[in-house]
Structures are given as C-alpha cells and as structure tokens.
C-alpha cells in the first residue's frame, strides 16, 4: 500500500497521522485543557488553602459546597485529560516497541480514567452529604 511503488504522495501518506495515528486533535485538546487549568488554578489554590488545618467535618463541608465542587470537578476533568495526552506523548517519544507502546498507552488511559472517576465520585459523594 505505502511502499515505494505507491501512487500516493509521501505527504498524503503521513497527513493527519502522528505517532498516535489520530492527527492533531490531541494537540488541540492539550492546549484547551491547559488554558482551562490556567483559568482555574487561582480558585483551586484558594480552595486548598481554605482547607489547610481543618478537621474532617470542616473540610467535608467546604468540599461539598456547590461552587467549590464545580470548580474542583472542572479542574479534575481538565487535569486528568491533560495528563492522559501528555503521558501519551512521552510514551510515543521513548517507547519504540509497538506492542509495549500500545500496552503503555492503554495503561495510561486506565490510570487517568481511574484517577478522574475516583476523584469525581468523591466530590459528588461529599456534595450529596451521605
């Protein structure tokens, strides 16, 4: 198909295909989530400082308040998505064995989704007050 005798030009063969074979969508999402976190970092740091030195009851009350829960949920979604893309770039840069690369990319997805879901579940549980 893509051997020397192919009629497709070299550019046509590589267009939209990075090492991830999914084009430039990850590049865009990496920037999108980065800008989101740049906007969210000040409120997130304020929330963390609000929690320092508080016992469980105080911390749970703050974390369960609606605006704080929403800020943290947005930050968690942006950061775990950003993490997933960033780690995939690192994997594709350094791991050249195809099978190991696919396994690593898969493990990376599992890790990031697990961290995201665990954190989201915790915040929703705190918000529901049970």
């Amino acid at each position: 198909m893509s051997g020397p005798s192919s009629m497709r030009t070299p550019l046509a063969r590589v267009r939209n295909l990075g090492a991830s074979h999914s084009g430039t969508s990850d590049f865009w999402r990496q920037r999108l989530t980065a800008v989101a976190m740049t906007l969210l970092i000040v409120p997130v740091v304020v929330v963390v400082i609000m929690l320092i030195g508080r016992n469980h009851a105080g911390a749970a009350q703050i974390l369960g308040s609606i605006p704080i829960a929403i800020i943290l949920l947005l930050f968690i979604i942006a950061s775990t998505w950003h993490m997933k893309i960033g780690m995939q770039v690192v994997i594709e840069d350094y791991i050249h064995n195809e099978k190991l690369k696919i396994a690593s990319v898969m493990a990376n997805n599992f890790f990031c989704v697990a961290v995201a879901m665990a954190s989201i579940y915790a915040i929703l549980k705190l918000s529901s007050g049970v």
């Binding site: 469980h56 911390a59 749970a60 974390l63 943290l72 961290v115 665990a118 954190s119 579940y121 915790a122 915040i123 549980k125 705190l126």
Partner: peptide, 9 residues
Amino acid sequence: LAWWLIAAA
C-alpha cells in the same frame, strides 16, 4: 490529590 478527596468522602 485523589487520595485526599477519597479520604474526605
């Protein structure tokens, strides 16, 4: 961060 949130919950 996840550990801290899960612990709070």
